[in-house]
Structure formats: structure tokens, C-alpha cells
Simulated assay, not measured.
Amino acid sequence: MSEENVSAGVNYALMKNFKKAMAAMGETTLEFSRRWDVETEPDGLYHYVGPQKTHRFKSVIEGLGNKDWLAGWMEEYAGDGKPYREDIPVDSMMMAVNDGLAKGGRPFGYQDEITAPNSDFFGDEKRNAQLVRGYFKCCRDNGIALTQGETAPYVYLLHTTLPTFDENGKKIITSAPFDAASYSGAVQVVIAPASRYVNGSRLRPGHVILGTSSSEWCSNGASVYIKRVSTLPDKFLTKLPNGKTFGEQTLIPTKSMVPLVAALQDAEVDITAMGPITGDGVAKAIAITKLDVSLRIRQWPFAMPLSCLFVMDKFNISMQEMLHTFNCGLQYVICILRSDVTKAQDAAARVGFDLYEIGVVEEGQRCTIMEPFDNLVLPEPGD
């Protein structure tokens, strides 16, 4: 062990057990990729062994954002010993997996990265066990082999802070009494046959927009939650109408879209565009294509997630802001031909998913028109 490293705040001995546990767990996941006709070797080599004559591999990388801060806060202050971090790996993996599905792929491989403000973060055996269980659970449930990982203490780059502001609204750097980490990773998907590749280029006016509901808010918009709810007397221990604390509600894990997309593909539904509702909220729906079209949403059968409803009412946040920040109950959008609607809904029902017809693609200038919300027009994010 390097005494210089330790004195600088990096103690690799504290990280050793976590690295070993993740490596051992990863070895047990190698067989999971066979669900999608991919064999995974221990050193991360992949072989497609399925019946299709053509296939393609694609990699997608994504990060989780600030959700682990909420888990860290609950771990520090809830005082109930619940495993608040166990589903953080699920959320992190789903950010990449649900994106990879949008290209018509099925996930078979994953490499994780956890960056923490110090090596002490990886010395907590109870927390480590939660993370290992979370990664394993997500791999098992979705047919993914975890082949590699990176564990990094960024002592001089990361610092967990509290949301404190001066009278002018300027953030004051105040250290938090707990540590939170940044989670990210890359997923590999197989597109087999290669003709299943989806990039939105075949989307046309008249195609039907389908949507499926989310488990809760998912992960995007965590910074808004942290800033707003931290001002309340009980902060994230504030009780919601369902009896859960706000913190518990926000840590409901993101729903995997793997069963839904696989069912649609197996039913030979012609998918012309699809994607998750993540950063920039519902306004991001237009990102499923690069074409100059508009998405007209004609009905909204989705219940507003309880955490979203709470902050919207408590802090008087406009619907326009909500739709630009959160999924507001919509997890995934899928565009198909009208002739395939019944077939798609039947396939979704067989795997336990709702799949509603919510709108139609129109000619237009890259925006989303929300008829159920007073015809609000959501410009393409960044405009």
C-alpha cells in the first residue's frame, strides 16, 4: 500500500473487498446473455450464436445523475436501516438499457463505473452488499452479463454538498455529512436480425404514438427535488398521502422496458421510432427522430407520479415546467403503423405492460403538442 496515496486520500485497501465482490458477482452473470443468443467469455468477448443470418452490436453509455444523493440522505437520516442504495444500480443500468432498446436492440453486456468522493465510500460493507445485490438483480432480470467495472475515488473532483443558498439564490458550498457517488455505465445490445434497427428515419406523419406508464419519476429531475424539498421542515422524511416518506417514494426503481420491447419484436410489430422519457422530461419525446415532424399527444391516461404531484402542488411549479423536467407518468414512447396497434397492445398485455394510444405524428417543426394540457407546445429541448 502506498503511504503517499493514503495521505492524499486514496486508500486502495478500502476498495479491495468491493472490487473482489463485484468481480465475483460479475462471473455469475456471464450465462445471462444467452437469453439473447449471445455467449459471453470471462474476458468480455461476445459471440452471437443465434439463428438470425444478420446481426449488429451497439453500445450506449449513460449516467444516473443525482439520485444517489437522495439515497445517501435517507441512509443518513431515516434511521430505519432500510437498504436505500440497493436499487441505485438498477436505476443506473436502466438509463443505458432503456436507451439501447430504442435502437431495436436487446441488452446482453454491461460495464459499470462508480466514482466516489473518497475511498472510504467503498469501505462500507453494508453499502457494498446492497450495490452488489442491485447489479446482480438487474443483470439477472434483463439477460445481461456484467463483464467489467471501474471503481474510482475522485478525492479532488467530487464533493457531496447540501443545497444551501444565500439571500440572492447563489449556492453556498456546504459539505454534507454523508457521501454520494456518481454511477454510469455502458450497455451492449444485439440487434438480430439487423433489420430490427430503429433510428427514427422511417417515422412518418400518420404513425401512431403509443405510451407506457412509469413506476414513478425514474431519475431525471433529482436536482429539482433536492433543492426544493430540502427547504421543508422534515425534508425527505415528509410524509406523502400513501404513507411513504418523500425519500422512499423517489427511490422506487426505474421500470425496465426490456420485456415490452422484446414482446413487440417477437410479435413482429413494425416499430418506426421509440425512446425513453428521461432528461428534459416529456419534451424529450421528439428526440426519437431527427426528422422535421411534430408529436401531437391527444390523451394522457397516465397518473402523475406521487413525488411529481407533491412538488408541483407544494412549490407551485407550472405544468410547462413539469413537462420539461419530469416524465409525468410516461416512461416510454413507441411509434408504429396504425395497422399494428391492436397487435402491439395485445403483445404488451401478455407481458404485463399497459400500452396506450396517446397521439399521432404530424408534419411540423420538431415539437410536442400536449392537447390534454391546454395545448401546451413543448419545443425541442435546447431551443
Rank of each mutant, 00 (worst) to 15 (best):
A180I: 10
K235I: 04
V198D: 06
F165Q: 07
N199F: 11
I252V: 15
P193C: 09
V198M: 06
K170N: 15
I252R: 10
S184D: 04
I209S: 07
V224F: 04
L210D: 07
K239T: 14
S230N: 12
G211S: 15
D234I: 00
R228E: 14
T212K: 05
P193A: 08
R228A: 14
L203D: 05
L240Y: 12
K170D: 13
V190Y: 01
F236S: 03
R202C: 07
P193V: 10
V187N: 01
Y197F: 15
Y197S: 06
L251K: 00
I226V: 14
V224H: 06
V198Q: 03
S195D: 12
S213R: 15
F165V: 07
T250V: 11
G243A: 14
K227T: 14
Y183A: 08
A180D: 02
T250K: 00
S195V: 01
K239D: 08
F246P: 01
S175K: 13
D179H: 14
P233A: 07
T174Y: 13
T231M: 09
P253R: 07
A176L: 05
T212M: 04
F178Q: 01
S214Y: 10
T254A: 05
S230A: 15
C218T: 09
S214N: 09
T212E: 06
F246Y: 10
V190M: 06
D234H: 08
N242E: 14
T238D: 10
T164I: 08
T254N: 04
V189S: 05
S214H: 14
F246K: 00
N220K: 11
T254E: 08
R204D: 09
Q249A: 14
G200Q: 04
K255A: 04
V224N: 07
A181W: 08
T212I: 04
V198P: 05
V189R: 02
S201E: 15
P253H: 09
A186P: 04
P241C: 13
L162N: 03
R202L: 12
G185V: 06
I191Q: 02
A181Y: 09
S223T: 11
P241T: 12
